[in-house]
Nucleic acid binder design. Structure first.
Lengths: 188, 188
DNA sequence: ACAGGAAACGGATTGTCAATCCGTTTAGGT
DNA sequence: ACCTAAACGGATTGACAATCCGTTTCCTGT
């Protein structure tokens, strides 16, 4: 059976909305007890829908993940390989800034208790990124010696760096410029 | 009264040693109850010496901070401004890698419950960094538009990025190269 | 319409750890 | 040796994660 009972679907949606609001108001702790209280349901219900904080986090990150996938597709279709890299890294960085839950999910390695949705998105993203980066390497646009993982880590690091400042959004372009210039090949 | 009673000094040292070993073995959680158990003393004693996890963390970071200060002094004395920047950023990055406690302290803003030692070191470091960076800006070696804080954040971000990989130490030079090329001025 | 049973709910409960409080012990000056 | 301030130990309180199970709700088949 793939569909939820009516009350379960309602509660799940309510819970996600509550959690999203919490994150939006700057509280990324996502205490499940507290979420239950705010959503007006028992803790048991919350834990049935999201067995761990992580599960809730991944569910929250789903839309941001989809947005990044869009960006990655656009990147892979662009004529110029280096522009593709710019689009890819920019999308990844912007979504981390827009959604702290996504930032946390994407920065940590795939776990085996990840929800299927997340695993699928992660795999698709990795595949797209692989083609974009491979193309850029072939043309020498990308600095040699950097793996796909290195790039991934560096973008997450840049997001982390932005988060240390008082107004991350105001510095995105500057930090992204630093990153792009740093990872560009000499030929660029 | 500036000196501790003999038993207090002994316990403090024992506690620091215990905590250092915990961090060295990969446990950065520094649960104060657990530290008490391992050091063979009551929790009350632990909390008297280090009222919060943060206080313990800062005490642990002290030697790493001193090492960075050394690096910063060397950097400020070097003839070539850009080389000074390289030395400065490299020292900051290496110590974060060598000591996770230091990484955590340096990445978070100065708190008013910081121990005096830390505050002093932080101030001295900021002063040294300011002169090194100012000199590099004057000569156009440093990309315009990046503040001292930006540089600080970017180094912390690079350390964070390194931490995401399986063998940080193996990638330090590569990531540092990316950072340095990213923050260098065009004239460089 | 309604009966039966699976699915979901609620919240009491247990376990873990941070942090405090206060009666007891100890160091070290006189 | 005495005395006091300093330090100690660990019981206790409080917050939160996570589980468990008796009760309630949905929805399917008749």
């Amino acid at each position: 059976m793939t569909s939820l009972r009516a009350d379960a679907a309602r509660n799940r949606a309510l819970l996600l909305a509550t959690a999203r609001q919490a994150v939006a108001s700057g509280d990324l702790s996502l205490q499940l007890n507290e979420m239950a209280r705010r959503a007006g349901m028992g803790v048991g219900t919350v834990y049935r829908h999201f067995p761990t904080r992580r599960a809730l986090l991944e569910a929250l990150a789903e839309p941001a993940f989809a947005a990044v996938l869009d960006g990655a597709r656009t990147a892979s279709l662009h004529d110029d390989p280096w522009t593709g890299v710019e689009i890819l890294l920019r999308a990844l960085l912007l979504q981390q800034l827009a959604d702290p839950a996504f930032a946390e999910v994407i920065a940590s390695p795939a776990t085996d208790d990840a929800i299927p949705q997340t695993t699928a998105q992660r795999n698709e993203f990795n595949a797209l990124a692989r083609t974009v980066l491979a193309r850029a390497r072939e043309t020498g646009a990308l600095r040699p010696g950097l793996t796909d993982e290195d790039l991934h880590h560096l973008v997450c690091g840049t997001a982390f760096a932005l988060g240390l400042g008082p107004t991350p959004a105001a510095r995105v372009d500057a930090y992204l410029r630093v990153l792009l210039d740093g990872v560009a090949g000499r030929a660029e």
